[in-house]
Nucleic acid binder design. Structure first.
Length: 244
DNA sequence: AATTGCATCAACCGCAGCCTC
DNA sequence: TGAGGCTGCGGTTGATGCAAT
């Protein structure tokens, strides 16, 4: 469910990330942190722009992320916070540990928004789909008048199912979610002792040109040969940290 | 079995705001 | 204080899976 990989005219790879790319990014950040996203792909040997690396890390690779299976409590929290803050997804995400703004945004658009929209148009809220959760949702949606309210209608049945399917709020899905790839599990295991934002010092870097996010990363050799420009470590570099 | 339409979500794009010089 | 660099955010896109026909 991702875009097919391709290279733009400046040689930057776009689209779906490969396992190898993920591993490179993880390994690099684990060791050196990410003090500078723009330069990171150069030294990580990735043919990606810094922006893409950041997004991949923040939304998919960084540790302690939950994926899928929103609990009823989380749904409620998202709804409440959206009511309060509007489309400030990053703000909302701060209150949901392990959730990313992107994921919450997607979830909002695909689940909650529809649910609220439907119920704003149909106050009966699918009476056939009874259940306490549904009733509470129905009440909630009637009250919903958030700053970014979009007269949401909704798939109450869908919401109900998702709510009921979760046995508890601790049903984090790293092992269970079909969308949680095995490589993610593996990569998550690698990093056990690291703070996400641990920042390693970077060696002095020569000036890089222009266009920050889309700047071409690195030489073909570096990518193909799996090495990093020596200048980015200095002369006393430790064992190569990459896993490949 | 084949086709169509919808839902999902990873990834891209553009822009605003912060920081440094 | 203004300009340029960098980061993060929010909106949007598009490929894929799946259900309906």
């Amino acid at each position: 469910m991702v875009r097919a990989p391709y290279f733009d005219k400046s040689g930057i790879k776009k689209g779906a990330w490969s396992d190898e790319e993920d591993q490179r990014l993880i390994a690099y950040i684990q060791r050196y942190g990410h003090p500078n996203w723009r330069q990171l792909p150069k030294f990580a040997g990735l043919r990606r722009c810094g922006k893409s690396c950041r997004l991949r890390w923040m939304n998919y690779l960084r540790p302690n992320l939950k994926r899928g299976n929103y609990t009823q409590k989380e749904e409620q929290l998202i709804t409440d916070l959206h009511k309060k803050h509007g489309n400030k997804w990053s703000l909302i995400a701060e209150s949901l540990p392990g959730r990313t703004d992107n994921e919450i945004k997607n979830y909002w658009h695909s689940h909650i928004k529809k649910f609220l929209k439907r119920n704003s148009n149909d106050t009966t809220c699918d009476d056939d789909d009874d259940g306490d959760e549904l009733k509470s949702k129905a009440i909630e949606c009637k009250e919903f008048e958030g700053p970014a309210s979009e007269s949401a209608t909704a798939d109450s049945h869908h919401i109900l199912e998702s709510s009921l399917s979760m046995s508890s709020e601790t049903s984090y899905i790293e092992e269970n979610s079909p969308s949680f790839s095995s490589r993610h599990k593996e990569s998550t295991l690698i990093n056990l002792s690291r703070e996400e934002d641990s920042v390693a010092s970077w060696e002095t870097l020569d000036g890089f040109s222009s266009n920050f996010w889309t700047e071409p990363f690195i030489s073909e050799n570096a990518f193909a040969g799996g090495y990093f420009p020596i200048s980015c470590y200095g002369t006393e570099r430790e064992e190569p940290f990459f896993l490949w």
